[in-house]
Design a protein around this nucleic acid. Structure first.
Lengths: 183, 183
DNA sequence: GTCTATACCACGATAGAC
DNA sequence: GTCTATCGTGGTATAGAC
């Protein structure tokens, strides 16, 4: 059922999808949807939370496993960022585009996780800069640029596009290293 | 009226905004909205078209005025890209996020303009590469990255953020030059 | 061109039988 | 837990007076 909601919300938007459509898609009556979730908004909230958690946990784990070298850390972080956004494009789209359809209460956990992921990237960049391994023009703008590249992937990339996933990851890693001015 | 629709669509999404809300915002009765546009979708179509036209014309003009040097061309293109997305953040958001709420017919002109802008960027990069002024890892991925940085700006940048617009433009230009490996 | 009034429909959500 | 049936609301859009 979350899978069905994900498909609908990703392709038509949260407000553009109805409970009736979702019910039809998963072959249930509309009323049956309210057994698992108390409202349409709670379905979206669950998707947004799951998406943010998966993304944040993966990024955090990758950086922790990458050792102490800033370049390795950035490589690991960008690699995961790209893989998450290309492997789960629908989830990425819903998480990033439909989040402000949530009330502040339901959006809060996701906002917090996003903030943490963002800070982790900035800290990696700043640490690399302090160690003279990176020389970005501006750490925050560089982080925003690296994040944006990944966020945009679900809208254009497909494994059938002629670029393999591993190839895409390598390009993104290389671009990120250029953005931070890695030596 | 287009201004009102822009505010609503940008903050609540197309499907999340109603004709009743729009009418209240601009202090008219709902029925009066149908004098200027035959449907809600046509209002969005007009915004999307205007936004794409402004963006494409500005980019095209900037590149044409930049002379024959690929670096100057890329500088000009990125500068305009950043300025458009920061000067008209609401329009940028609606154009990029609500476009697939349009029927294919109404979306077509915007899609065509977007394709042209995208190709212009790729051509600048490829020409710079052929002239040995650029050395990108992959022209298309580089173009996607440069585009994505700008598309994301309306969601985080504000002139009150401590970064001046001219400063932001310079950072983006510098990042773009790094992405394409400018010498 | 803007108004009042309303048609007609789809929406989210609930009640209550099984 | 899933069904049938429905409530109440708000959606887009139109009719017709002024």
């Amino acid at each position: 059922m979350l899978e069905g909601a994900l498909r609908l919300f990703a392709t038509q938007g949260f407000h553009g999808s109805s409970m009736r459509e979702l019910a039809k898609l998963i072959e249930l009556q509309p009323s049956a949807l309210y057994v698992e979730f108390p409202s349409k908004e709670h379905i979206l909230a669950e998707l947004v939370l799951v998406g943010h958690e998966a993304h944040h946990k993966a990024i955090r784990a990758a950086v922790l496993e990458a050792g102490t070298d800033p370049t390795s850390q950035l490589r690991a972080l960008v690699g995961v960022h790209v893989r998450v956004h290309t492997t789960y494009p629908h989830l990425a789209i819903v998480v990033n585009r439909e989040m402000d359809a949530l009330s502040p209460d339901l959006a809060a956990p996701g906002v917090a996780l996003r903030e943490q992921s963002s800070r982790l990237l900035i800290e990696v960049i700043e640490r690399g800069t302090a160690l003279k391994r990176f020389a970005p023009e501006h750490a925050y703008v560089a982080a925003a640029a690296i994040g944006a590249m990944g966020l945009r992937l679900p809208y254009w990339y497909s494994p059938a596009s002629g670029i393999g996933l591993e190839e895409l990851v390598e390009h993104h890693v290389a671009i990120a290293l250029r953005i931070v001015g890695a030596k």
